[in-house]
Design a protein around this nucleic acid. Sequence first.
DNA 1: ACGACGGATGTGACCGTGCACATGCCGTGA
DNA 2: TCACGGCATGTGCACGGTCACATCCGTCGT
Lengths: 339, 339
Amino acid sequence: MPEELHRGRPPSIRDVARLAGVSHQTVSRVLNHHPSIRPETKQRVLDVMAELQYKPNRAARALVTSRSHTIGILSASSTWYGPASSIAAIEEAARAAGYWVSTANIESSDARSIADGLAHLAAQGIEGLVVIAPQVRVFDTLAQLSIDVPYVTLQSTGRAPGHALSVDQIAGARMATRHLIDLGHRSIYHLAGPQDWIEAEARMLGFLEEMSARDVPTTAPILGDWTADFGYYAGRELLTVRDFTAIFSSNDQMALGLMHAIRDAGLEIPRDVSIIGFDDIPEAAHFWPPLTTVRQDFAELGRRCVALLLGDLDPAAPDYRGTITPELVVRGTTGAPLF
Amino acid sequence: MPEELHRGRPPSIRDVARLAGVSHQTVSRVLNHHPSIRPETKQRVLDVMAELQYKPNRAARALVTSRSHTIGILSASSTWYGPASSIAAIEEAARAAGYWVSTANIESSDARSIADGLAHLAAQGIEGLVVIAPQVRVFDTLAQLSIDVPYVTLQSTGRAPGHALSVDQIAGARMATRHLIDLGHRSIYHLAGPQDWIEAEARMLGFLEEMSARDVPTTAPILGDWTADFGYYAGRELLTVRDFTAIFSSNDQMALGLMHAIRDAGLEIPRDVSIIGFDDIPEAAHFWPPLTTVRQDFAELGRRCVALLLGDLDPAAPDYRGTITPELVVRGTTGAPLF
DNA sequence: ACGACGGATGTGACCGTGCACATGCCGTGA
DNA sequence: TCACGGCATGTGCACGGTCACATCCGTCGT
């Protein structure tokens, strides 16, 4: 029968040490897998730990080591499938590597709420930062608050070398555009995402590159806000002119809104207008018609994100670097133009 | 010119104290808004803090107070709109109340991954837990791991009184069912969510209650998995029988899959079959036809969730209790049956 | 046979903050 | 005039780990 335990406070290594008949330092060594512990001693300590339901105190450890083992995520629009999938994958990968994840969501992307979010994460002593938000402003704010942690952004245009994940958004956008051109389209609009999102920029760049590489005359992209609602209103506007046969939307939600507007106008997809999206959200296959789009592996993105970050933190971490290639998924919304 | 500072370690209250010519305890009092500090002294301390860019060390504070100020979220399927919206709102509300949020996402809902997730959160010393997952198993696991923190679940059927949020899912489901019955439907199927989700259970309950209240013969609900894919396959199965005129789907994604299957079969919505969903995801208004559904305020849900939790933690926290009533949104997928 | 060496373990300080208690000062009432 | 109480502030310790260093003991080489 073990001697009486203090009620109130959870057991500490000293409690474990006392019951196991060793010093607190030996208990610490067991916790940290120190090599020179006799197996017999180790087992005794482990037994007592189990008996006491001992759990290491994270705060105490963080205090003395100055390491929080926490990764912060700054995210705008975490309610959408893409970001949400990446966040889930980040969390999973981080947890597997022994890290915690703390999130700060920002609603609007004004400087103030970005600063609030970053300050919140910084106050926690995060060791790494993942940015899923309008990035230009975030970096400015990061500098202003003199927060100095390794960071990773989810997308790349080569703007932040070494910090960005090499998912080839540009290649994906070129694939989408090429698909439309190959079908015979020559009047193609691009419905882009918000200006300060790197994803939006990369996809727009890919679109423009492919168009000019194929000598197709280009119109200025329309800047949207990622929502289906915006796609719908943009579609209504565009249809007052009707000088196009295809639209490449920068994400699937806006594509859905476009389709809605086109059908409202009495036109048929893809006979009158072809639509292609980006992301391949799980619902896209069930749109009417099923949406042709470019698939991105958001989960893989998240995993590599963490690997990149941990590469800076723990040199021993596995290296997931390399390019993730998106994939064209042809469904029912694209076809040859009529004339 | 301030005296030389230690490089390497960030400034502590003692550094601030020395430069301000006070004791570390006075600095601590300023930090904690202790009433009896002379305004003049307080200002001097604040000035030094700003000059040094002093940031309180969370680990040290947590160690001595035994409080982590962290709320944990255990979430399955955080990639979907509903949960993701609630999570974002929880994070925002928690942050506003001075709490941090840490998430653990579980992919599969087997006992092992639930236990992993909970252990991960527990190791962090969370003070409260929000559960967005199959709840029955979570509570069992919680007990097994002898984790004892206040918790809140996002939905209620009165199963966990005092811990659940009173969003009236049952009322919402009854509204949806009533709408179909009022239109004249008498052969109505219900496509439910997974069995161990309380949301699914509540909506199913509401469906059954309303059906029996109106003396409409009821068929056994079909248990789905929330996905559009499942909705599609379930729809294909159902259409081999075709003994119904309307389907109430427990969420919008499955409704989308149903609509896809129905159109594939050459039927028209709502002429041949009426469909009603649940949630009102932002895309629902742009489905074809636009989906009739029941709107839930996920963000409000998240906010109240935190309030409920903080009510246990800080008696001074605002009280958001009360019932959130869902709202029927009639769009284009419901109409009177043909015959 | 004896000292050097290394494995196994113990001792004490320290990380940054908050708490309990002590101290000095000033105003006030008997 | 002095004891008392409350305000403003200081002193030292505790929280639960880890780190640097000390100690003990057995083995091995010469």
